[in-house]
């Protein structure tokens, strides 16, 4: 990272691990859980949030001195909603099937707490370049969790990754299915997303004692 000073680089790397928006700051849980049954949907969602948060943070940061604090929430919502409409229309034009799978959750990026949380906590108090890095960092941290959860749910639930049958064919009984392995269809249902995420948090916190909460 020759381009970035040490402080700037920290803005990107911190949210990936010890200040992760999903597992530590508890932001943006809704979409992290709802669309992770497939790896592909998780990746698209992560990219969408990257776009919205990266640009949104810059826009809010540029406007931070002219937004009256009383109506800042409405202003923020309008900025996010505009960016999300762009994402939604692009998805509908180039990946219609996928936009059907994501259904209302593209729209719900608007109320994704990561976005409002970062606007409030960072973009309103910092310059555009820093805000941009913070946006990228946080959305990457969000994306990492989405991809981890999506990876395990798709692999264990339907035995595929991005639609490719990595574990063999369950009907023709090739690959691991030849040894009597069965897909765990339960992984595709909603409750397992919560439990997988709980386990991710468990692993992360047992590796880093400093993150443990007092009840």
């Amino acid at each position: 990272m020759g381009l970035l000073s040490k402080k700037d680089a920290k803005l990107i790397t911190d949210p990936l691990t010890d200040d992760n928006p999903v597992t530590i700051q508890v932001l943006g849980i809704c979409s992290a859980l709802a669309i992770t049954a497939e790896l592909k949907a998780s990746i698209v969602m992560a990219v969408a949030v990257l776009f919205v948060l990266g640009i949104g943070n810059v826009v809010i940061s540029l406007m931070r001195n002219i937004i009256p604090s009383k109506i800042r929430i409405i202003v923020q919502l309008i900025v996010v909603a505009t960016l999300v409409i762009i994402v939604d229309l692009v998805l509908k034009a180039f990946a219609y099937e996928l936009s059907k799978t994501l259904s209302v959750f593209v729209g719900l990026i608007i109320t994704n707490c990561i976005i409002m949380g970062r606007f409030e906590a960072f973009a309103l108090a910092n310059g555009p370049w820093k805000a941009f890095l913070d946006g990228i960092g946080n959305s990457l941290g969000y994306g990492v969790i989405l991809i981890i959860v999506g990876f395990f749910r798709e692999l264990l639930g339907s035995g595929t990754l991005l639609g490719y049958k990595v574990l063999g064919d369950p009907i023709a009984k090739t690959g691991v299915y030849a040894f009597g392995y069965e897909n765990n269809g339960f992984m595709l249902l909603a409750p397992m997303a919560l439990i997988v995420l709980g386990i991710v948090i468990w692993i992360q916190r047992s590796r880093n004692e400093a993150l443990i909460e007092e009840h």
Partner: peptide, 9 residues
């Protein structure tokens, strides 16, 4: 390590 958020999930 599960206290708080983890167990709630």
């Amino acid at each position: 390590a599960l206290r708080g958020l983890g167990i709630t999930f």
